[in-house]
Amino acid sequence: MPFQSENSPVPIPPPGEDELPYDDGEPMESERHRAQMDMLIEVLKLFWHDRDDVYVAGNMAIYFSELQAKKNDFRGPDVFVVLDTNRRERKSWVVWQEDGRTPDVVIELLSESTEAVDRGEKMRVYAKLLHVPEYYLFDPFSSALEAYALDPATRSYAPVPPEANGDVVSACLGLRLGVRRGTYLGREAGWLRWLDAQGRVLPTAEEQARAASDEAKRLAARLAEYEKRFGPLPGSGSG
């Protein structure tokens, strides 16, 4: 249904992402929350760098109804993933501009100031209005992870039990989520990490660079040992 101006009875098209506010108005609660959000988004974008049919973002407004847009009432997930879409820069996610597509996965990072909303109003919106199949709650300081799957019949969430090691499986993404201790941006903590189907941690850009550097050093050491025993390789310029 198109919008109707207060000054004219003539229907007008609903606003798009260029007209709607794109900041969700909710600053991240701490540096740890911001770093955790950035890590989750960064790693998925690196992992799917060659795919144009996946959109990954966070702390961005999602508009799902004209009434919501009129009231300027919107929900901004900390992290969300949309499949079967096109990857492009967006100011906000406007459902009526996206052929009705809504997120497939949402992650909210809990804090004392947001937990009640994340477990209440946001959970209701994601289940009953946006029909998000998978919803995750994670506390960056206690490292507690909860997973929920949508029951399409009741449009409500049911808890998903973790595996023996505490990891949870994302059926939508074909990946896993689990807490692993490590260092990110100079902070050592128990971070929520994306894992592949075999449980291997998907690396950050920093981890990729470190692994490449370590491999280069390992190969250089092997070459040096070889040349020490057998002499320079032909055409190596050594010796």
Score class of each variant (00 low, 15 high):
57 A>W: 02
168 V>A: 04
35 A>H: 11
11 P>T: 09
150 L>I: 05
161 P>V: 07
179 V>R: 04
19 E>C: 03
92 S>M: 08
140 P>G: 07
49 H>A: 07
53 D>E: 13
190 G>R: 05
8 S>Y: 01
15 P>V: 05
15 P>A: 10
108 E>V: 11
12 I>K: 15
176 R>C: 02
132 V>E: 06
218 R>I: 02
81 V>Q: 12
46 L>K: 05
103 P>I: 12
73 D>E: 04
215 E>S: 01
155 R>K: 14
144 A>I: 13
104 D>G: 15
4 Q>Y: 02
115 E>T: 01
160 V>P: 01
96 W>H: 13
228 K>F: 01
8 S>W: 00
39 M>F: 04
82 V>N: 06
1 M>R: 00
39 M>I: 00
105 V>E: 09
25 G>K: 03
113 S>L: 07
207 E>Q: 14
110 L>R: 00
155 R>A: 14
63 Y>H: 07
139 D>R: 07
26 E>F: 02
151 D>H: 15
174 G>Y: 09
46 L>W: 02
219 L>M: 07
150 L>G: 10
237 G>Y: 06
194 W>D: 13
227 E>A: 12
18 D>P: 00
68 Q>C: 14
103 P>F: 02
158 A>I: 11
70 K>E: 12
56 V>R: 03
145 L>M: 10
109 L>K: 00
107 I>T: 03
34 R>M: 11
76 G>I: 07
216 A>R: 11
45 K>I: 09
107 I>M: 11
90 R>N: 12
140 P>F: 08
47 F>K: 14
211 A>N: 11
98 E>S: 06
215 E>L: 05
19 E>Q: 06
74 F>P: 14
182 G>A: 01
24 D>F: 04
225 E>C: 12
91 K>V: 01
99 D>E: 08
216 A>D: 12
151 D>L: 13
97 Q>M: 12
38 D>S: 14
63 Y>N: 11
212 A>K: 02
90 R>I: 04
97 Q>S: 05
209 A>E: 15
122 K>Y: 05
129 L>E: 15
96 W>T: 10
186 G>C: 15
56 V>A: 12
230 F>S: 06
93 W>S: 11
38 D>E: 12
10 V>P: 06
143 S>A: 15
66 E>T: 05
229 R>G: 13
187 R>G: 07
114 T>P: 14
11 P>K: 11
234 P>R: 14
112 E>A: 15
119 R>M: 07
184 Y>T: 13
178 G>S: 06
124 R>S: 13
48 W>N: 09
61 A>W: 03
237 G>S: 05
135 Y>H: 03
183 T>W: 10
202 L>V: 02
86 N>K: 14
178 G>T: 10
125 V>L: 08
222 R>Q: 13
165 N>F: 08
106 V>F: 04
108 E>G: 01
205 A>M: 08
173 L>N: 11
69 A>M: 06
23 D>R: 03
54 V>D: 07
117 V>A: 01
30 S>I: 10
49 H>V: 13
225 E>L: 13
230 F>W: 09
154 T>W: 05
88 R>N: 08
136 Y>I: 00
181 R>F: 03
140 P>T: 06
31 E>Q: 12
105 V>M: 07
199 G>F: 00
235 G>D: 07
196 D>M: 13
160 V>Q: 01
175 L>N: 10
